[in-house]
Design a protein around this nucleic acid. Structure first.
Length: 283
DNA sequence: GTGTTTGTTATCAA
DNA sequence: CTTGATAACAAACA
């Protein structure tokens, strides 16, 4: 599942791969990917535009275009963005498992012969062409960026305490409060902070909040350094998996023994999500 | 055939 | 307004 570290990894890779490239055409294989625009309109408006820069907000990628509009991409559950370098004619080199497949929903063709594939098995991901105003609206309805200077302990606790009766899991998943955490990194951050995701916000002591604040940053930074978690569908822009999976302490480890204390990891349903924690390490 | 998997939004209920 | 639950989107997998 692409969450902040995965999207950030792709952003960094695509920045060096795509900046300055000019879009030649857009091919759309699943029209809902670019809804409400049609493929004809989408192609007309993107053709000839240069990619000036790439930014990330929450789990969304923004491709800043020379014309002033933004191509926004959300990978949702299974989206992949794969960069295809230009291969000389006759070359047998290929990036693994990224050929236009039955899961390819759209392709950006650049004028130098390179391509960007969008693969999305579950079809929840989307591409949208945004005006500056529309883009600001989307940015405004997302909360704190955990790796930005704005992510201070004061701002963090203020956001959490807006809903004192919610459980920690639900709060950390709420993109309007803190942006970019998903199921994997919420569970991992709670483990690192030794706090159960079932706790209600109003029961958290200051020292616990401080540990949680630090844990979120620590977990996200390490995950980015490792290129993200390839639990299932996520791959980097060159088709290779991320390397954070071996560092997971609880996510996907229900029933397995805690790496700290050997207690079996509990798996429950919380806020509608599979939730993993160690009932011994986490209080 | 059934349940599970998850990001986001919408909708309903108390 | 808060909160919790559920469905929808869609497909694969056990």
């Amino acid at each position: 599942m692409p969450e902040l570290p995965e999207v950030e990894t792709i952003k960094r890779e695509l920045t060096s791969a795509l900046e300055g490239k000019v879009i030649e055409s857009v091919k759309v294989f699943w029209p809902k990917t670019i809804a409400p625009l049609t493929a004809v309109v989408f192609n007309r408006r993107l053709k000839g535009q240069r990619i000036e820069s790439i930014e990330r907000r929450a789990k969304i990628l923004f491709f800043n275009l020379s014309g002033g509009e933004t191509l926004a991409v959300h990978l949702k559950l299974t989206g992949q963005l794969i960069f295809m370098p230009h291969y000389p004619q006759g070359s047998t080199l290929r990036v693994p498992k990224v050929e236009p497949s039955k899961h390819t929903r759209a392709i950006l063709n650049f004028t130098d012969g390179t391509k960007l594939y969008f693969n999305d098995l579950r079809k929840f991901g989307w591409w949208r062409l945004l005006s500056p105003v529309h883009r600001k609206e989307i940015e405004a309805r997302h909360g704190l960026e955990p790796l930005s200077p704005n992510f201070t302990f004061k701002n963090f606790t203020t956001q959490l305490q807006r809903y004192p009766n919610r459980r920690l899991k639900q709060t950390l998943l709420d993109q309007t409060l803190i942006a970019g955490l998903g199921n994997i990194y919420v569970d991992e951050s709670c483990f690192a902070a030794e706090i159960r995701p079932t706790r209600h916000i109003q029961t958290l002591a200051v020292n616990e909040l401080k540990k949680l604040f630090g844990s979120i940053k620590k977990v996200l930074r390490l995950a980015i350094k490792k290129g993200g978690t390839s639990a299932k569908d996520y791959v980097r822009s060159d088709g290779q998996p991320g390397k954070f999976a071996p560092y997971l302490k609880v996510y996907g480890r229900g029933g397995k023994l805690c790496k700290n204390c050997k207690t079996p990891i509990a798996k429950i349903k919380l806020a509608g999500r599979g939730t993993h924690f160690c009932s011994s390490c986490q209080k």
